[in-house]
């Protein structure tokens, strides 16, 4: 490999207010972070696709009639006398009720609203608005996302089933757990953005972190909504 010298390299890099790799110009840093984020979202898409696959796989197989318990008939052949019981031995002789869509969709709507505020803040910041204009929007976004997170945790308390009552109940609660993880991540980012905004760190055209965070928040809102439709209309 032939190489030729160029100019010296370290002197002119300095450091930038947003931290990160000290070699980078802000443009280079943003390009890399953009790529990182899309790959993270790509990996998360695979994860979400697998959740959807598991849902429809178990629903279609309806093993031992225990998707929601409707078709479950006791089967004492070959020692399978544990059929029609839940994971802790209680008999299941009824259809497991579905979760109330109110909670499921309220969480999705709050996630969408949160992402929407962040998007609006980004638009404002791109148009040169000061931190005084964008920070309240980021605060509202953070509040909405936190609200979605709290509501998602609350939903665990009001479900008409528990994890041990068949495959539908299991899959539903796993999805809720996944939502908690995702919303918690977005909450950390959203609260961080709000604090940074209140310190003026998004002023003077530094909208890029809002942009990246908004992208992730939109993806999470989309996946939460998609899963809400799935668990409500394909159960």
């Amino acid at each position: 490999m032939s190489v030729v010298d160029e100019h010296s390299s370290h002197e002119h890099h300095g450091h930038y207010a947003e931290g990160g790799n000290h070699h980078d110009t802000p443009q280079a840093k943003h390009r890399k972070e953009h790529m990182l984020l899309w790959m993270l979202i790509g990996g998360d898409m695979v994860f979400t696709a697998l959740i959807i696959f598991a849902w429809f796989y178990l629903k279609a197989l309806n093993v031992e009639g225990m998707w929601r318990g409707a078709a479950c008939k006791p089967n004492f052949n070959a020692g399978l006398n544990q059929s029609c019981t839940d994971g802790i031995g209680n008999a299941i002789n009824h259809i497991v009720p579905t979760a109330a869509p109110l909670h499921t969709f309220a969480i999705a709507i709050l996630a969408i609203v949160g992402a929407g505020f962040m998007w609006f803040a980004e638009v404002q910041a791109r148009q040169g608005a000061s931190g005084k204009a964008t920070t309240p929007l980021l605060g509202l976004g953070a509040l909405a996302i936190l609200g979605a997170l709290v509501w998602q945790i609350y939903q665990f308390q009001v479900l008409p089933f528990t994890t041990v009552q068949g495959a539908y109940a299991s899959s539903f609660e796993y999805i809720m757990g996944s939502n908690v993880g995702h919303l918690a991540l977005v909450s950390i980012v959203a609260v961080g953005l709000f604090i940074r905004g209140s310190k003026g760190l998004h002023d003077n055209g530094r909208w890029y972190q809002i942009h990246l965070s908004r992208l992730f928040a939109v993806w999470v809102a989309f996946s939460v909504t998609l899963l809400a439709f799935m668990v409500t209309f394909f159960n």
């Binding site: 225990m66 998707w67 299991s170 796993y174």
Partner: peptide
């Protein structure tokens, strides 16, 4: 840990 049934056939898993 929490008794879901993704993989336990007796409770609807596979």
């Amino acid at each position: 840990v929490v008794g879901t049934s993704f993989f336990a056939p007796a409770q609807g898993g596979a």
